[in-house]
């Protein structure tokens, strides 16, 4: 796929140095590209566009899902009124989703039916994202379009269903596509835009936001650490010292990725509940 790409190569601070050493050492620097996200299949079909190849990213997803389920099971297996340490951490997460996200946006009563979905989404996104900085897994389960897309389509279906169940098909579509209080010729513009918003753009942006954040983070990590490796092993003389710089950059980005993992889980859940709120709103 897209051979010879050097997509993020100019982002490397040390690129001028790399270009110089490339000629002398001969092995060259491999800039990370989109190939990172399509590793060869471990088993199953090895065709590039096959649906049945089980590769590294799929493996990471399965592992993280098992870990999440195991942790949740261990944490609440013997749930007590006075929680222990494990139960405490899980309750912290569940409470955060309920109080800070769902109830703040949807209100106490309306949030109740959707708490399970929002909590599931929050924990899934968080666990998959965190895999991006765990040694030996090193890639987020959300770094390829499948998982974010499934979650976003889930949100889409749920908020459409919520709106239809509350207002009925006709009333819901009318409220969403024909917002009241504007002169009628404006509907020629507003209605297509709103339709695109409700049916396409909301799930699409949910998907792309999560996907691209995880992709960008992974590419930055690969760039930093492969540059460190290259500079240290193949740089000559003082150039070796610059590897310390790119290594420090890699550490910084690792920490930043932990923050981004949390932030993206928060934003995904927050936007899901906001879209639900749009669907459930009373007409004004």
């Amino acid at each position: 796929m897209l051979p010879g790409e050097r997509i993020l190569s100019t982002a490397a601070i040390a690129l001028p140095i790399l270009a110089e050493t490339e000629d002398s050492s001969g092995s060259g620097f491999h800039a990370p590209g989109i190939d990172e996200f399509f590793p060869p299949a471990i088993f199953g079909s090895t065709d590039l566009d096959s649906w049945w190849g089980f590769d590294r990213i799929m493996m990471v997803r399965v592992i993280m899902m098992v870990v999440l389920l195991l942790l949740l099971w261990l944490g609440i297996r013997r749930a007590k009124l006075v929680p222990g340490r494990g139960q405490n951490i899980i309750e912290l997460g569940v409470e955060f989703v309920r109080v800070q996200i769902a109830e703040q946006v949807l209100g106490h009563e309306r949030a109740k039916p959707y708490l399970a979905m929002l909590t599931t989404i929050f924990f899934t996104v968080l666990t998959m994202n965190i895999a991006g900085v765990i040694p030996f897994l090193n890639i987020s389960g959300n770094a390829r379009v499948g998982l974010p897309l499934v979650l976003a389509v889930w949100v889409l279906v749920v908020y459409l269903a919520a709106g239809v169940r509350k207002h009925g098909v006709g009333k819901y579509l009318k409220a969403q596509l024909f917002p009241p209080g504007i002169p009628w010729p404006a509907y020629l513009l507003i209605t297509p835009i709103e339709a695109l918003q409700v049916f396409v753009l909301r799930p699409a942006t949910l998907t792309i936001r999560l996907l691209a954040n995880m992709m960008a983070g992974h590419l930055m990590l690969v760039l930093c650490f492969s540059a460190t490796n290259f500079l240290l092993l193949e740089g000559g003389g003082l150039v070796k010292l610059t590897s310390a710089l790119s290594f420090a950059g890699g550490i910084f980005i690792t920490l930043f990725e932990v923050f981004v993992a949390l932030l993206q889980a928060y934003i995904f859940t927050l936007l899901a509940s906001i879209y639900l709120n749009f669907a459930l709103e009373e007409e004004h």
């Binding site: 790409e5 997509i7 590209g33 989109i34 792309i208 936001r209 996907l211 934003i267 927050l270 936007l271």
Partner: peptide
Amino acid sequence: MIGAALIEVLGLLGLVAGLMFT
């Protein structure tokens, strides 16, 4: 956070487009 998330998508679209349409 809501506003920032909406704005952020624009920058990320640039990243995705850079990776896809080359």
